[in-house]
Design a protein around this nucleic acid. Structure first.
Length: 858
RNA sequence: GCGGGCGUGGCGGAAUUGGUAGACGCGCUGGAUUUAGGUUCCAGUGGCCCUAGGUCGUGGGGGUUCAAGUCCCUCCGCCCGCACCA
């Protein structure tokens, strides 16, 4: 018989789905809407198998929901602005636009090859002016609403390339291309006031019930709400400090009596002022600034301080002067950029105090410890306790002391209780070419002037070169020279472009009406489709992209664009696809296709030299452990690849791609094909009436069929694709065992095949269409409803109950479902294995969990 | 450094969320079939004890409970994020 020809079948069904517009979504439907979206890709080149797990998961959800009667929107687009296009331009002398669009063409073809059920009429590319013109308008609206503003902030500056570097381009303090020591520089940049929504973004997290807890927790920590107090320390030499006082923020105002120093950020104005007259301090600050702007770099750097000689007056202790230091671990962006150090009750302060021989005075004594005996060693005490050595706070618990200290500061008018957030405003300026131009003009007379709406889009000029360092927009002969929209005099365009998170913060709304020209999307279409019912993507976006999108949606609502606040009602974060890594003798990485197995040893195919097999790692070009999409689809077909991507691992965990795995998936596909096309018993015609009675085997298999329908449906609802696949394999095994010897076997086999084919439809859509046709159906499977389980067949009359003695399993008993405890108990006590285990000992207690377990305690 | 996660047979993972640990698959072993060649079918497969049966077993250690992979404490290992990669 003919074998399943994946190539032929996949091409055929893909064309048919396309020609019949099976996946195009409309807003006019009486079915409930369902919007499923996978995080859209950056068009970086060519997809490998690891990239498509995400889209396969989304596709299963889309096809499943469609079968369940939903009006499904499942779009795809391209997050097309970004740094790699510029890197390619510099490295290969190819224009970013050319590079990007070529990549898009390749990747679109690859996604289509996988048979993904997208509505391609809604495809968008964010680098198109048709897209980014709308976000320029949004920015102007934000500006008018006070949500966008300019301020100075620090960047990584490469003095050789004359450019700003991304944190990932700074490697051990040096520019990745130039190798030059990176400096921190201050630039005037645009910011979006996400902090205005901090409380709202935090408060709405519990309502995101279909988000993973871990993501909500990460966002909560990122927003980092903390309550405490601001307080001002008078300085002993206001002239030298340039200010009469230094304001600090603390969450531990209760420990003020244990303060032994003040620390200010190297970027604090007072530090800058003191450095003017102190070259050593200036030197110290310069060294701090060499660390780079990433928080990880700052936090892992050795804690260092510099004594300024300045002193600050303790607000509660008359005459006590605390030294003021500049410390590299104090962040200017958080709180006030200055802290007071209480070494006894903060680990970082303690480390600092030990290093610079500052006093350590415990002021919180743990309950039940003698205050006289309590000392601090290498570990700060941060737990609860009672205040000592603390004047008016003595005897209070920590919380009460915080309250009392706060009130006293307020009464003295030197501070107030307050709340701060770790969250900082979103810097959206990038000194880059391949991004959306920020639509403002700088005029010497009028300052910053928004580009009038009628002149949008501010289009990115395409005639640029990358032959010298810096931003090509700066070097363009004409582009930035315009007349001021306000006064008409010569002025300069803003040459910064937006952070690419800007585009991805509203693309999900654009998909609702991607061809809308007047605004980013029609309010009506957005009202219909939003929020996204199920969003799917990697955890690496748990904070930034998702938080920015949540903020953006609120900001858009505030500007009258839409009427939802949360863009994503459901979120699933999928794990990585991993693959073994291979290294040649010389240590260089090898692609999987460069190796082979000879006599049980892994060797290099080219010359038989030994290969070291490394651990599983995320598929990445740099380690060469990638498997190309075309290679897999050519050899096994898209359905086999899809099956493997959904098998074995739950979606939120890593998945191992292996040659054995793909072979196993391929075998199952063929097994299923044979079952339906060459059934063990000839099938009755489609739609034949059910027989009068079913024999034992037929009844058992019918139960299996209906249980599988129920359980698989439940698995898909919960996104347990790996379990769903396991159940489908089990049903396939059960059906294959039918031999036609029992009454109704043939009819049940058809019933089972029909159910099975419909259940595998979302996973292996091409094969399923082919089998649906083979079963004698004229209709398309994609237009066929999801099977329904018969409740009468999903529950068993008897259940197997485990019997334990003292928690150890001794027997299992078949019992009637929901048998009474007394009956179950009697059956258990009569079991020979139980009697033997009891060994005549007195029974103390019997625990009966209905339909599960009986535990006899002796 | 801070934040988040993960850890179950040789391997990927199941376990109705505190109730029979190892579903399903990969691999391996033995057998059958076939014009052996991405075959197919049957049987077996956590460790230890000679089997009936017993005993140990979910990264290590401790605890709560009639009962712990699941809850608590602690330690170890690995992975992800940290604001200009997307």
């Amino acid at each position: 018989m003919a074998r399943y020809n994946s190539k032929e079948a996949e091409t055929k069904w893909q064309a048919l789905w396309r020609d019949r517009g099976c996946f195009s979504a409309t807003e006019s439907s009486d079915r409930p809407k369902y919007y499923v979206l996978e995080m859209f890709p950056y068009p970086s080149g060519r997809l490998h198998i690891g990239h498509v797990r995400n889209y396969t998961i989304g596709d299963v959800v889309a096809r499943y929901k469609r079968a369940r009667g939903f009006n499904v929107l499942h779009p795809m687009g391209w997050d097309a602005f970004g740094l790699p296009a510029e890197n390619a331009a510099i490295a290969n002398r190819i224009h970013p636009a050319t590079w990007t669009f070529e990549n898009i063409d390749v990747m679109r073809g690859q996604l289509q090859m996988m048979g993904l059920a997208y509505d391609w009429d809604r495809e968008i590319a964010t680098c198109s002016p048709d897209y980014y013109r709308h976000e320029q308008k949004m920015f102007l609206d934000f500006l008018a609403a006070g949500l966008a503003y300019r301020k100075e902030s620090w960047v990584n500056w490469d003095p050789v390339e004359n450019t700003v570097l991304a944190n990932e381009q700074v490697i051990e303090g040096r520019g990745w291309r130039s190798g030059a020591l990176v400096e921190k520089r201050k630039l005037s940049q645009w910011f979006l006031r996400i902090t205005a929504y901090a409380e709202d973004l935090l408060g709405a997290l519990p309502g995101l019930e279909r988000w993973p807890d871990k993501v909500r927790l990460m966002q909560e920590n990122w927003i980092g709400k903390s309550t405490g107090a601001r307080l001002r320390f008078a300085v002993d030499d206001p002239e030298r400090a340039g200010t009469p006082e230094i304001e600090v923020f603390t969450t531990r105002q209760d420990t003020l009596f244990g303060a032994s120093f003040l620390a200010i950020s190297p970027n604090h104005p007072v530090a800058a002022r003191l450095a003017e007259a102190n070259p050593e301090l200036a030197q110290f600050i310069a060294e701090c600034n060499r660390v780079g702007t990433s928080e990880a770099a700052i936090e892992t750097a050795e804690k260092r301080g510099f004594a300024t000689g300045l002193k600050a007056r303790h607000p509660f202790i008359e005459g006590l002067l605390l030294p003021v230091c500049v410390a590299n671990f104090v962040l200017m962006e958080y709180g006030t950029g200055a802290i007071f150090g209480c070494p006894a009750h903060d680990q970082r302060d303690l480390d600092f105090a030990r290093k610079y021989q500052l006093p350590v005075l415990p002021v919180v004594i743990p309950d039940g410890i003698d205050p006289a005996a309590f000392t601090i060693g290498d570990e700060a005490y941060t737990g609860p306790g009672v205040l000592r050595n603390s004047g008016f706070l003595d005897g209070l618990e920590v919380e009460a002391a915080k309250q009392a200290a706060g009130l006293r500061l307020e009464a003295m008018a030197v501070g107030e209780r307050t709340t701060v957030y770790r969250l900082r405003d979103w810097g959206v300026s990038r000194q880059r070419y391949w991004g959306c131009p920020i639509p403002v003009v700088h005029c010497d007379s009028c300052g910053v002037v928004p580009v009038p709406e009628a002149e949008l889009p501010v289009a990115l000029p395409l005639d640029v070169t990358f032959d010298r360092p810096g931003n090509p927009l700066e070097h363009h002969p004409t582009w930035k020279h315009v007349n001021c929209p306000a006064c008409g005099r010569p002025a300069r365009r803003e040459t910064d472009t937006f952070d690419t998170f800007f585009e991805s913060s509203w693309y999900f709304a654009r998909f609702a009406s991607p061809h809308e020209t007047g605004r980013g999307f029609s309010a009506e279409a957005a009202r219909y489709w939003l929020p996204v019912d199920q969003y799917i993507g990697g955890v690496e976006h748990a904070v930034l992209h998702l938080l920015y999108s949540r903020f953006f949606t609120r900001a858009l609502k505030g500007c009258g664009y839409l009427d939802v606040e949360e863009p994503f009602a459901g979120l699933m974060t999928q794990g990585m696809v991993t693959h073994a890594t291979y290294r040649a003798e010389d240590g260089s990485w090898l692609y999987p296709e460069e190796i082979e197995s000879r006599d049980g040893r892994i060797v290099r195919a080219a010359d038989g030299s030994p290969v070291a097999v490394g651990r599983l790692e995320k598929m990445s070009k740099s380690r060469k452990n990638v498997v190309g999409l075309e290679v897999v689809v050519d050899a096994y077909g898209a359905d086999t690849a899809r099956l493997l991507l959904l098998s074995d691992s739950p979606p939120d965990r890593d998945l191992e791609w292996s040659e054995a795995g793909i072979d196993g998936a391929w075998r199952y596909l063929n097994r299923l094909w044979r079952l339906v096309v060459e059934p063990p018993v000839p099938l009755p015609a489609a739609g034949s009436a059910a027989p009068e009675r079913f024999g034992e085997s037929a009844t058992a298999v019918r139960r299996a069929i209906h249980k599988t329908i129920a359980a698989t449906t439940d698995d898909l609802e919960k996104f347990h694709f790996n379990k769903a696949v396991a159940r489908l394999r089990e049903l396939t095994n059960s059906l294959a065992e039918l031999d036609g010897g029992g009454a109704g076997d043939a009819w049940v086999l058809r019933e089972g095949c029909e159910a099975l084919v419909r259940l595998v439809g979302p996973v292996m859509p091409h094969l399923a269409e082919e089998l649906w046709q083979a079963l004698g159906h004229e209709s398309l499977l994609v237009d066929t409803a999801w099977p329904e389980a018969d409740p009468a067949l999903t529950a068993d009359d008897t259940v197997t109950v485990a019997v334990q003695v003292n928690g150890k399993l001794r027997a299992t008993l078949p019992l009637a479902r929901d048998a009474e405890a007394g009956v179950a108990e009697a059956a258990a006590m009569a079991d020979p294995a139980v009697i033997r285990a009891l060994d005549g000992k007195a029974v103390r207690r019997i625990i009966v969990v209905p339909n599960r377990i009986i535990n006899v305690v002796v």
